[in-house]
Design a binder for these strands. Structure first.
Length: 867
RNA sequence: GCCCGGGUGGCGGAAUCGGUAGACGCAAGGGACUUAAAAUCCCUUGAGGGUAACCUCGUGCGAGUUCGAGUCUCGCCCCGGGCACCA
């Protein structure tokens, strides 16, 4: 580089050069893509299929905000990158348009969602086109389209036929004034968000899917790398949601259950005999589930959920009034405040006792709402000494608290000082709080198990109980069956007809879809009848079996059912006689890459996996895991919190796109942080990418107009290989910000070096194409190419040419960098030391001192340790 | 309370096989061009000290391991997101 010559052109804008006009360029290429079918792979004959999926949006009235655009752009950049690498990328898009959000918004405006949603979709389509997504619009779908939900209903029928769907009573939030079911989000401080009435719990018959049957498989596949390459955070969330735990089911029973043990003798039996007095146990048998069978000797009372079927039988006549009142009080609470509201423990004594199978003592049976019917057996053995909730409850009601585990010394010997060391101690020490450590403890007050470490005791106590017929080891999942019923209007009607004689009868497949009628009075009213049931012409239908008058199911299905299979539909949208074509499915599925928000880490992704497993079992699919690769994107942060409607900090992208251009906006979004982590949105930063594109535009203009193609200098050649490597790696790892930074560096180098190598500029444009597709197309054309740049090939690099022949290494003295010297790449330690000893700065720090050690890291640094 | 992320210049962020901290961009200051402004271009920009060559300090806080720590270990603090009585 010659410093005397002006590094940049003196007269900037020659008359023949057009300034970069994003509006015109973007309109031109969006039109061409549509005309030429650039984004439409041949789904039947594509040689290298790559299914690039992104989570389809819910078409809200507000339109897509910047946070949504960030997600779509990042997924699109990846798809375009894969296209340039030679894959036939299928990138479909659609709309998740059923559901309570749309319905509530429609109710607020007084517009039927059936009118509102299509309008929103028009706006969404416009926005998605304006950002330049590589979408195959031939395969757009909407879950509200009868041609789609016909197959959602078909799916329900397949599950029903296979015995994977069943009906049972379950609690919902009920607003007594609006006469409607409320979602948990619609309950604010225990009141209806619309009318302010106190919300109640109501029990309704609802349809469930047996997802719990698949809990083991859903968990096991998470570890199977051949099936699932997923973000670690997402698999972890699924694991937690599945919530596998190992424990024991223990039977607590009335008098006489342990009679045999009296004869057997032994430590525990002695306890049994000596303690088997006091209140008379009831004759009942109650099963509990616990993860701490080792603490059974400390179970001083038992608690049943208020809904537990045995509550009635266990309640003694003198306690009946109080117990009934308590259960009614709990039932009247809404689900939200019961679960997340005040945590003050309340409960009531049933009057009955059961016998602790370990100690033989009679313990009282209580009812309390901190025990949930949905988990385990709906009953617990309360061990107040070693469970915080039981401790709190025991304190409040004056129930006995017994220590059965004492702390042991810390396993790390360095830290085993002080009190923990002389364990087991304090077998009699009173508990100020529950001692819940389930690893570092030994049993006390537990008969023959005294002194046994907790982990071992879990097994031993379980085996002992089992030998006495009072328990067995058991695995439990936290996962519940999936309730798909929604007592709402805006969803696909569940295709079932109720007949007096034949009960629930599936709608015959030939009669699908069961159309959601367009009704004016879709809003819930005081009649207490579901909106659909008010329409007799729809409600009453002949029973498919006997032809007598039957009634339709008036519930619709959960939106998560719509979205649990949409990716199966995309490749087959043109077939109206099958949900997904077997040949197409075999070619395109499972999904190659799926990108979406981690807010769907559990429900949507888990339900999709479940549905896929069922369809595979039924012979409809050749795979059982739907998404081979999944990556969760980060979120855009604005004013310190995630951009979302609930935070009220959304920014509309349209004005930015209009002002700066879609490509600049895409570049900015991809540059502001790592895609999987998100970043801060502040509009000052957007001028950077715009300036960058302007510079590239000028560079191309100069290369073309001046017909110059200079050979690459050595420095530029090295930079070229480094850049291709960095950009490629960044794209593959979704670290787009570093890819863009590398491109900026390359451009800075080219400008500084005054280099106009035609091939290199073409490569630059190619590497820019995933981020700035319209801009890249236009410049590709300016550079003299005819077809789309997305038919061209991604550049490659030579690893050997990414490094210079000589390298600058740091020279440290005692770990502090004192100087730098240039040595040949891969120089021997001797040569490096010799070079460093020439250096004055190094000498200053080593002179007169003994060099005790030399650390040499080739091509990196040299460290003299002096004493 | 529990589970995940994350704390690096004025700001967004680079650098994670332990090896030259601050790439790239924004903002700011100075200069060139211009009647002027915008745009563009050039220079400076972690803090402190020094005329300078240079020196000292510096990646949330406190310890530790190491020739060497943003990176590893232990103990804390703060911010963001998610889950919530799961026995």
């Amino acid at each position: 580089m010659n410093p005397s010559k002006s590094p940049v052109k003196q007269n900037p804008a020659p008359t023949h050069e057009l300034p970069y006009q994003p509006d015109a360029v973007e309109a031109k290429w969006q039109a061409r893509w549509a005309e030429r079918g650039t984004n439409e792979p041949d789904l039947d004959s594509a040689p290298r299929p790559f299914y690039n999926l992104m989570m389809f949006p819910y078409p809200s009235a507000e339109g897509l905000h910047v946070g949504n655009m960030f997600a779509f752009t990042g997924a699109d950049a990846y798809g375009r990158f894969k296209r340039l690498q030679g894959f036939d990328v299928f990138e479909p898009i659609g709309f998740d348009a059923f559901g309570i959000h749309s319905e509530n918004y429609a109710i607020k405006l007084g517009i039927n969602p059936a009118e509102l949603i299509p309008r929103n979709i028009v706006n969404f389509r416009r926005q998605l086109k304006s950002i330049g997504g590589m979408f195959d619009w031939r395969h757009e779908l909407s879950t509200t389209d009868p041609a789609y939900y016909k197959w959602t209903q078909w799916l329900f029928l397949q599950l029903l036929k296979a015995g994977k769907a069943y009906k049972k009573a379950a609690a919902v939030n009920w607003c007594p004034r609006d006469q409607t079911v409320l979602a948990n989000e619609q309950v604010i401080d225990g009141r209806c968000e619309r009318c302010g009435t106190v919300v109640e719990q109501r029990t309704l018959e609802q349809w469930f899917f047996r997802i719990t049957e698949y809990a083991d498989r859903l968990l096991a596949d998470l570890d199977d790398k051949s099936k699932m390459d997923w973000s670690e955070s997402t698999t972890l969330a699924q694991r937690n949601w599945l919530g596998r735990s190992e424990g024991a089911e223990i039977v607590f029973s009335g008098a006489g259950a342990l009679r045999a043990d009296g004869q057997r003798g032994g430590g525990a039996a002695d306890v049994t005999l000596s303690a088997a007095k006091g209140p008379k146990p009831s004759g009942a048998e109650i099963k509990v589930y616990t993860t701490r069978p080792d603490t059974v000797f400390g179970a001083t009372f038992m608690v049943l959920a208020p809904e537990h079927p045995q509550v009635r039988a266990l309640t003694t006549p003198d306690r009946k009034v109080e117990v009934d009142a308590y259960c009614r009080m709990v039932a009247a609470k809404d689900l939200v405040s019961r679960k997340v509201g005040e945590r003050e423990k309340t409960g009531v004594f049933t009057g009955s006792y059961v016998q602790n199978p370990a100690t033989g003592k009679s313990i009282p049976v209580w009812v309390a709402d901190y025990v949930l019917m949905e988990y385990g057996t709906g009953a617990i053995m309360a061990v107040p000494g070693h469970d915080e909730r039981d401790f709190e409850f025991a304190r409040r009601y004056g129930l006995p608290i017994v220590r059965v585990v004492a702390p042991t010394s810390h396993p790390d010997p360095e830290r085993s000082e002080g009190e923990g060391a002389e364990a087991p101690k304090g077998a009699e020490a009173p508990l100020e709080a529950a001692f819940v450590d389930n690893v570092n403890g030994v049993l006390v007050n537990s008969g023959q198990f005294d002194g046994m470490p907790v982990p071992e005791a879990k097994q031993a106590v379980t085996r002992w109980l089992e030998s006495r017929g009072a328990g067995r080891s058991q695995v439990h999942f936290r996962l519940h069956d999936w309730t798909i019923s929604r007592q709402r209007y805006w969803g696909p009607p569940i295709p079932v007809i109720y007949c007096e004689d034949h009960g629930p009868v599936p709608v015959p497949e030939k009669d699908l879809p069961v159309l959601l009628p367009l009704i004016e009075d879709f809003q819930p009213d005081n009649s207490g009848i579901s909106p659909l049931a008010r329409h007799e012409e729809w409600y009453y239908v002949p029973c498919p079996v006997c032809g007598k008058r039957g009634r339709r199911e008036t519930d619709v299905s959960d939106t998560f059912l719509d979205s649990s299979w949409y990716f199966l539909r995309y490749p087959s949208t043109e077939f109206d006689d099958r949900p997904f074509d077997p040949t197409r499915t075999r070619k395109w599925l499972p999904v190659t890459s799926y990108i979406g928000g981690n807010e769907h880490a559990v429900l949507h992704l888990l339900y999709s996996r479940f549905i896929t497993m069922v369809l595979q079992e039924l012979g409809y699919l050749h795979f059982d895991e739907p998404f081979r690769k999944f990556r969760a994107h980060g979120h855009i942060v604005k004013d310190g919190s995630k951009m979302s409607k609930t935070h009220g900090n959304v920014v509309v992208p349209d004005e930015y796109i209009a002002r700066w251009g879609a490509d600049t906006f895409r570049m900015y979004l991809m540059f502001l942080g790592p895609f999987q982590e998100g970043g801060d949105f502040r509009d000052e930063g957007i001028s950077g990418p715009r300036r960058f594109l302007d510079k590239v535009w000028t560079l191309v203009g100069e290369a073309v107009s001046e017909q110059r193609s200079s050979p690459l200098s050595h420095a530029v050649e090295i930079k070229r290989h480094q850049t291709v490597k960095k950009v490629t790696d960044g794209l593959e790892e979704l670290r787009y910000n570093t890819s863009i930074a590398a491109l900026m560096e390359l451009v800075n180098t080219l400008r500084a070096e005054n280099s106009w190598n035609q091939q290199l500029i073409e490569e630059l444009i190619l590497m820019l194409a995933p981020f700035a597709p319209h801009f890249a197309e236009e410049n590709w054309e300016r550079l003299g190419h005819d077809g789309s740049i997305f038919r061209a090939a991604w550049p490659s690099w030579d690893e050997r040419l990414t490094v210079e022949a000589s390298v600058e290494i740091a020279v440290q003295v005692n770990g502090k960098t004192r100087s730098k010297v240039t040595v040949p790449r891969g120089a021997e330690q001797g040569a490096a030391v010799a070079a460093a000893q020439e250096d004055a700065a190094v000498r200053r720090f080593t002179e007169g001192k003994e060099v005790r050690k030399v650390v040499y890291v080739p091509n990196r640094l040299l460290n003299f340790v002096v004493g």
